[in-house]
């Protein structure tokens, strides 16, 4: 088994009275992983911790085999990580190739290697002649690609990508996702993709971590998480919708009325077939015209994980 890229054990980080990380325990295998969570879930704190920019109050962490709490560990860690921050960031007054080469030198490349690597990674992300112009005048898409290039310049095994498609038009977004997918799969890079756009994560990552209130609400392979999401079916009936709805409520089923005679029905994990819907139709005197399964999505899995994390813990158990 390959060494995990991230091993966090009971990690706690507080800012004043706010617990940004609340006993976070997490192990991530190499490969592309999406990091999801609502605002304030602790994603940014986790990324900072991964870079060794902040230390935990308690708990232990090993990232890419390095201990981020020691100076030597942090230095090794930052050589092993390429970080693409969110939002605009550029070195004032420098051209694209100078920026990437300079950051490569800061990562430990020799001056000549830094310039060669700068050109290679700028080629890879598709920045051609523009690389010789000052970055301040670039478009958002070009700046995003530059940020990816500087994260790759020292060829790190682990990439932290924070909202890489932020502010991109559809073409730019497709290109960026293709790059991220290529890095995560063809180039065998481990990457942690932090994004609010679930389709981006779904299309580029194999695994996902859903964070909520400083803890990992769910983690695992996307296929497994989506598979365990409650099954949803679209039910179309012939007859009085109100009576059918009353019977569904009476049977304790969660549903949503999507039209006068159509319902989106969430089936319980204990009874994933549509028997309950058929029984409700029979009791209400309506006839079911169609039952179609709705494809479970990462969004459903994400929302379910958040709901479960937000639900009060049963008495006598510790959350």
């Amino acid at each position: 088994m390959k060494q995990p890229i991230l091993e966090l054990d009971a990690l706690v980080k507080t800012y004043g009275s706010v617990r940004a990380l609340d006993g976070l325990t997490l192990t991530l295998a190499p490969g592309p992983t999406g990091l999801l969570g609502p605002n304030g879930a602790g994603k940014t704190t986790l990324l900072k911790l991964c870079l060794g920019l902040i230390g935990p109050d308690s708990g232990s962490a090993r990232i890419a085999g390095c201990d981020p709490t020691t100076a030597a560990g942090r230095a090794r860690l930052r050589r092993a990580i390429g970080y693409m921050p969110e939002g605009d960031c550029l070195v004032p007054g420098m051209s694209g190739v100078e920026t990437v080469a300079m950051l490569g030198r800061l990562s430990g490349l020799e001056p000549r290697d830094a310039m060669t690597r700068a050109h290679e990674v700028l080629d890879y992300v598709g920045l051609d002649e523009a690389r010789y112009r000052e970055v301040a005048g670039w478009s958002t898409g070009m700046k995003q690609r530059l940020k990816l290039a500087q994260a790759l310049v020292h060829d790190p095994p682990l990439l932290l990508l924070d909202e890489p498609t932020d502010g991109l038009d559809p073409t730019g977004r497709r290109h960026m996702l293709a790059l991220v997918h290529d890095l995560g799969h063809a180039q065998q890079k481990s990457l942690i993709l932090c994004s609010h756009l679930l389709p981006d994560v779904e299309s580029t990552c194999d695994s996902v971590v859903v964070m909520s209130r400083g803890r990992a609400a769910a983690s695992g392979r996307i296929d497994d998480l989506v598979g365990t999401a409650r099954a949803r079916v679209r039910v179309e009936i012939h007859g009085e919708g109100g009576a059918f709805a009353r019977e569904l409520s009476g049977a304790g089923l969660a549903f949503e009325s999507t039209g006068p005679s159509t319902f989106a029905l969430e089936l319980p994990a204990s009874a994933p077939d549509a028997d309950a819907a058929l029984a409700a139709a029979a009791r209400s005197g309506t006839r079911i015209v169609a039952i179609e399964p709705e494809r479970a999505t990462l969004q459903q899995a994400f929302l379910r994980a958040l709901d479960e994390a937000a639900a009060p813990a049963p008495a006598g158990t510790e959350r």
């Binding site: 030198r105 490349l109 020292h154 290109h175 790059l179």
Partner: peptide, 24 residues
């Protein structure tokens, strides 16, 4: 790679243990 990407070339050299960051 797919989608008109250029070739990614892995870096074959080594990184300095202590980069001369201030000079850079």
């Amino acid at each position: 790679a797919e989608a008109n990407l250029e070739v990614y070339r892995p870096f074959a050299g080594t990184l300095r243990e202590h980069p001369r960051a201030a000079v850079a």
